[in-house]
Design a protein around this nucleic acid. Structure first.
Lengths: 115, 115
DNA sequence: TCAGGTACTTACCTAGAGGTAAGTGATCGG
DNA sequence: CCGATCACTTACCTCTAGGTAAGTACCTGA
């Protein structure tokens, strides 16, 4: 394992999706390609700066594809690469787990905030 | 969606596993309960401070169970709660995805580092 | 001109995540 | 006494990640 950047596949995957907004962005791109402004509006609380930053990082990682349309007003679309699609498929069980336990997780966080 | 802490299940799940060492720790606890020192030795590069910190956080989140044995030398065991077990099950596809694409991910990171 | 649309970029800031190093306490055995 | 075991805790520090605010460029229409 010496000289390897990641100790296992899970470590590598967490590196790709680690970032405050990445998982949500990946999910927002699940159904169809989206434009920057669309993503911005859908992702509650994200700033333009954070959005472009995380998109760029995921583009570099090969999970997001960016397509520029030469028109005015500018049009840029973001979509999942095949790699990104397989990543989203792998994220589905985790999202379902979160859905199922959402209330419990929030309760725990509230208790922690109160203590 | 107002007043909710998390925008969806995936957001909540990412909050629980977010932390440099959490996913790896959860995986280290997959097969059986482990002791602190064991975990420390298995997780290459982790400090005691980071290990206990992340264990504590996951304990608060209800995914890790800590059991103190009153003996000398001290013995403390960490194990997955049922919630933690289901979380690990949900993480499995992600880990497999990472295994499958490990080389590609590392290549991408190397390119980025060189640029 | 101004205001609107689009997709960014840049300057600056700081909270907090992660880290290093040293220390604690309770025992046991040499 | 010392050194070992175990599982932490504490003090201090760095710097990354995330954030706010303002700005840029290209156009169109009133």
């Amino acid at each position: 394992m010496r000289g390897r950047m990641f100790s296992c596949g899970l470590d590598a995957a967490m590196n790709v999706i680690g970032g405050k907004w990445k998982a949500l962005i990946l999910w927002a791109l699940h159904a169809e390609p989206r434009r920057f402004g669309e993503l911005r509006r859908d992702l509650d609380g994200i700033s333009e700066k954070m959005l472009i930053q995380q998109l760029r990082e995921m583009e570099c990682d090969g999970v997001v594809h960016r397509e520029v349309f030469h028109q005015v007003p500018p049009k840029v679309e973001y979509s999942l690469t095949p790699l990104g699609q397989s990543l989203n498929a792998a994220l589905l069980p985790l999202g379902l787990w979160g859905d199922e336990h959402l209330a419990a997780i929030e309760d725990k966080k509230k208790q922690q905030a109160a203590a």
